[in-house]
């Protein structure tokens, strides 16, 4: 359990760092972003509301340190301020509408991609210089070199626009009533296929290569050699001995790549007008909606930290050495 506590401590620290960054960034920047921000609200908010907003961001006349604690206090209460683009909705409410979609899209894509990529890496390493090993890694690295959003545009253009096999965007059709009905869920899946496929395509090569390379190292280890000497079936040698061990560094890499993949997933959302954080982020950038931007940054960071904690639990389960009493 000490392992998890240590990781938890680290994530709390990272979350605090993100909060602090969020607080100091506007104050470190040239010019006066606070003035710019409030200029955008002028005429839309009364003096009292304006004062409340100032306090939320700690943009008062108080000394910096007390501004900082005021800010932390508000954020901890879930008060992220008011959105400019979606005036007068509070930032948290705006983010809340899209969070599920982002987590659904990125989460599904990253799990599908990791699973398939890792299995292909095992196959590639075991049949070294075979047909798969010769062609697949290079092909997938090439596909992975395309920007997410560009591939999304091509996929959308060919499969959606030209062939009409898939809807052109959004999370579900206009004629649908959200709920747990089969038709609605089927529609959600139909809308999610292209964006998920895009993210999977771009990231597949990375997982494949990382698993392939660790597999090749593990296949040369003593315990795999002993497993072969024991006369075990090749399947058992590969899965239970080689792949089971090679998975560990891949899972660590998985945690570290989460933030990166999420970024790509956000860009993909934009192309598909998918109603997640990516779409909101563009709205925020276009409208110079700083409260929304900062809110999205915080929420996404927290989501990534949470996902990393889950990955740590998986690692704990996979590697008995981390379960030690010490």
């Amino acid at each position: 359990m000490r392992y998890i506590l240590r990781r938890l401590g680290f994530y709390l620290l990272a979350a605090w760092a993100a909060l602090t960054l969020n607080f100091f960034l506007p104050r470190l920047m040239p010019g006066d972003p606070a003035a710019a921000l409030f200029a955008r609200f002028r005429g839309r908010l009364g003096p009292e509301a304006m004062q409340a907003l100032r306090e939320t961001f700690g943009l008062t006349e108080a000394p910096l340190i007390s501004q900082y604690f005021t800010y932390l206090g508000h954020v901890l209460k879930g008060d992220f301020g008011i959105s400019v683009a979606y005036f007068p909705s509070p930032v948290l409410e705006v983010i809340g509408t899209g969070l599920v979609w982002t987590i659904f899209l990125a989460g599904t894509a990253v799990i599908v991609s990791f699973t398939i990529g890792t299995l292909l890496g095992v196959v590639s390493a075991w049949w070294r210089r075979g047909l798969i090993d010769t062609w697949l890694p290079s092909t997938l690295v090439f596909i992975g070199a395309f920007p997410y959003f560009w591939l999304a545009m091509v996929v959308l253009y060919v499969l959606g626009f030209t062939l009409g096999w898939f809807p052109l965007g959004h999370a579900y059709g206009d004629d649908m009533t959200p709920g747990f009905s089969a038709t609605f869920l089927a529609d959600v899946v139909r809308h999610a296929v292209l964006p998920i496929a895009t993210v999977v395509l771009v990231t597949l090569g990375g997982w494949l290569l990382s698993m392939r390379n660790t597999m090749i190292a593990v296949l040369g280890s003593d315990y795999v050699n002993l497993a072969r000497a024991k006369g075990l079936s090749p399947w058992r040698v590969v899965m239970r001995y080689a792949a089971r061990n090679a998975l560990l560094p891949s899972v660590t890499g998985f945690g570290m790549a989460l933030g990166f993949v999420l970024g790509g997933s956000l860009l993909t959302e934009i192309v598909f007008s998918y109603p997640g954080q990516g779409y909101l982020l563009v709205q925020a950038v276009r409208n110079q909606d700083y409260p929304l931007m900062q809110g999205i940054f915080l929420v996404i960071t927290l989501a990534v930290l949470g996902a990393n904690l889950l990955v740590d639990f998986v690692y704990l389960w996979l590697d008995p050495r981390t379960r030690g009493s010490a």
Binding site: F10, Y11, L13, A14, A17, A18, L21, N22, L25, P26, M29, P30, P33, G255, M256, L258, G259, F260, L262, G263, G264, L266, L267, L281, V285, Q288, Y290, M293, Q294, I296, F297, I300, T301, V304, L305, N308
Partner: peptide, 24 residues
């Protein structure tokens, strides 16, 4: 190490956006 590990775990794109948005 703590510093770069924190930077590794904070998602890059949203961070890039909030920094870039404040600068010319």
């Amino acid at each position: 190490s703590l510093l770069f590990n924190v930077f590794l775990v904070i998602p890059g794109l949203p961070l890039a956006i909030i920094i870039a948005a404040y600068l010319p």
